[in-house]
């Protein structure tokens, strides 16, 4: 059995808000900046430091530590070793356990990406931390850290507390919190920590890694999303998005069909978007999809089925075939260019 360090006895000793910096090959995932921004607010309210934790190889050759400080961190902890590149749960987990035992953080924020969730689930056990997945609100309430997350398919919002264990860990999906603008004038401290993992002790080996540019749909003002109703042809959606200066997104089912890349999936297990305009074309409106787009300002639905639940969750809708309606919309905006703000 892995060593368990039950920290319930010394809750008072735990302080500071940590953010796990998700980076691959020196490229930091956007969700990290979102968490640093949220973490800054929490740390200020608690009167504690915001600490960014970076694990990787040759971090000193990157500007990641400086970026973390510019994004709000008071301190950056760096665990630098080839064993940390690329990410693997076993060495990352072992190193994190050691850092929790030696540094005793009160809160740890982790991105709700596949990497972040793989990491969080692993590290919560040996540190006996309270881990809450997919938080959408994080709040200090009378000195108590409250994590809120959708429950029962989004019909309810559960408040999760962690009274007797530290750290209190939360994962947050990309797009839930806004990232703050970097401030190059901020000061912070950078500390290299002792690396306690040895390659010989690892149980896994990354044989191959194929990663391209990761599309970011979370910042777009206009999102044109397609589902199974697109029937394999997203071309009109790309064209409309292009015209309206927006991004194309999709349901999980459309992603699984291979019609579009996974980074563009909206929903419970994808991204959260809150654009000014969300166009849902050929999307039924399953609860897991709605969860990722419910905060959009205006929702437009295009669906052949007048009874599709998406119409109850849309401001304006039309019953029709998207392969007819979208080309008509494209035509309209080509003829009325003044309708599109520059």
């Amino acid at each position: 059995m892995a060593a368990t360090s039950d920290t319930s006895a010394d809750i008072e000793e735990h302080e500071d808000v940590w953010v796990f910096v998700e980076q691959h090959d020196g490229e930091v995932a956007n969700v990290t900046w979102e968490l640093l921004s949220k973490g800054r607010d929490l740390a200020d309210e608690r009167g504690e430091n915001l600490v960014a934790l970076v694990m990787g190889e040759n971090i000193d050759e990157t500007d990641i530590p400086e970026q973390c400080i510019a994004r709000g961190a008071d301190k950056v902890l760096i665990a630098d070793d080839p064993v940390f590149e690329p990410y693997r749960s076993d060495p990352y987990g072992e190193q994190f356990r050691h850092l929790v035992e030696t540094h005793k953080p009160a809160i740890a924020l982790i991105g709700g990406t596949h990497t972040g969730r793989d990491f969080a689930g692993r590290v919560a056990v040996p540190t006996h931390a309270g881990l809450t997945a997919d938080c959408t609100e994080l709040e200090m309430e009378d000195g108590r850290y409250e994590m809120r997350r959708p429950a029962f398919g989004g019909d309810a919002l559960a408040t999760i507390i962690c009274p007797e264990h530290r750290p209190q860990m939360s994962t947050v999906r990309p797009g839930v919190f806004p990232a703050a603008e970097p401030d190059a004038d901020r000061d912070g401290e950078i500390e290299e920590v002792e690396v306690v993992v040895d390659e010989a002790d690892t149980m896994t080996e990354v044989l191959e890694r194929e990663v391209g540019d990761v599309a970011d749909i979370t910042d777009a003002d206009v999102v044109v999303a397609g589902g199974m109703g697109a029937e394999g042809d997203f071309e009109p959606l790309w064209e409309l998005a292009d015209l309206l200066d927006g991004e194309v997104a999709a349901t999980r089912d459309a992603v699984e069909e291979g019609w579009i890349e996974p980074a563009r999936q909206v929903g419970q297990t994808g991204k959260t978007v809150r654009p000014k305009l969300y166009i849902a074309a050929g999307i039924s409106g399953a609860i897991q999809h709605l969860e990722g787009m419910d905060d959009s300002e205006t929702v437009i639905a295009i669906n052949t089925d007048p009874n599709a639940p998406i119409f109850d969750n849309a401001d304006y809708g039309i019953v029709g075939d998207l392969h007819e309606v979208i080309p008509e919309l494209i035509e309209y905006f080509q003829e009325n260019e003044e309708a599109i703000p520059a």
């Binding site: 437009i300 304006y316 809708g317 039309i318 919309l329």
Partner: peptide, 17 residues
């Protein structure tokens, strides 16, 4: 949500605009 269903694509386009 408004939950308004329109009949013509042009009406939809105007709402989008």
């Amino acid at each position: 949500r408004e939950q308004e269903v329109v009949d013509e694509t042009d009406e939809l386009a105007e709402q989008i605009a």
